[in-house]
Amino acid sequence: MTGTTTTKRIVVVSSGLSTPSSTRQLADRLTADAVSILGGRGIEVEVEVFELRDLAHDITNNLLLGFAPPKLEQALDAVARADGLIAVTPIFTTSYAGLFKSFIDVIDSQALTDLPVLIGATGGTPRHSLAIDYAIRPLFTYLHAIPVTTGVYAATSDWGDGGDGVRSLPDRIYRGAREFADLVAATDRSNLVSDPFALDRPTGHLIGGLAGE
Rank of each mutant, 00 (worst) to 15 (best):
T89I: 09
G98H: 06
R9M: 03
P126Q: 11
G212I: 05
K101I: 02
S157C: 03
A154K: 03
T150Q: 15
V88P: 04
L85D: 07
F197I: 08
L210S: 12
R175V: 05
V49L: 11
P70M: 13
D171G: 12
A75V: 02
I43G: 04
L38Q: 08
R53D: 13
E44G: 14
E213T: 13
I59N: 06
L139R: 02
F140M: 12
V117S: 08
L76E: 05
V117L: 12
S129E: 15
K71Y: 04
K101D: 09
T156P: 01
D164R: 10
R178C: 02
L38A: 13
A68L: 02
T113Q: 15
T6Y: 03
Y153F: 15
P126C: 10
P69L: 12
P90F: 05
P20K: 13
I37T: 06
A68D: 07
A186M: 13
T94D: 12
A211S: 14
E46S: 07
S22P: 10
A177Y: 00
G16Q: 09
V148F: 02
E73S: 13
A181I: 05
G160C: 07
D158H: 15
I107M: 12
P196S: 14
I86P: 00
G160I: 06
T5D: 04
P20H: 12
F50A: 01
D195S: 06
F140I: 10
A181Q: 08
R53Q: 11
G123F: 03
T149W: 02
I104F: 00
A97L: 01
G39F: 00
D83G: 11
E48N: 14
S168Q: 14
P170G: 13
R29Q: 14
Y142M: 09
I146F: 06
D83N: 13
R9K: 10
F92H: 14
S22F: 08
H128K: 09
V152E: 05
H128R: 07
H57T: 15
A32Q: 13
G123T: 08
L118G: 04
T125H: 06
E48H: 09
G160A: 15
V148N: 04
L30T: 08
A145P: 04
G162P: 01
T141S: 05
H128Y: 07
V117D: 11
D54W: 04
G66K: 01
L52P: 06
G66W: 00
F50R: 00
I43R: 05
E44W: 03
Q74Y: 04
D188Q: 07
H128W: 10
H205M: 09
V106L: 00
H205Y: 06
R172V: 08
W159V: 07
A75D: 04
F180P: 00
G123R: 08
T60R: 07
S36N: 10
L99H: 02
L26S: 04
I107P: 01
T141V: 10
A198S: 14
L206G: 00
T7L: 13
A56R: 02
A32R: 11
A131W: 01
V13Y: 01
L55R: 05
L55V: 08
L64N: 03
T93F: 10
T187M: 06
T4E: 15
S194M: 06
L115F: 07
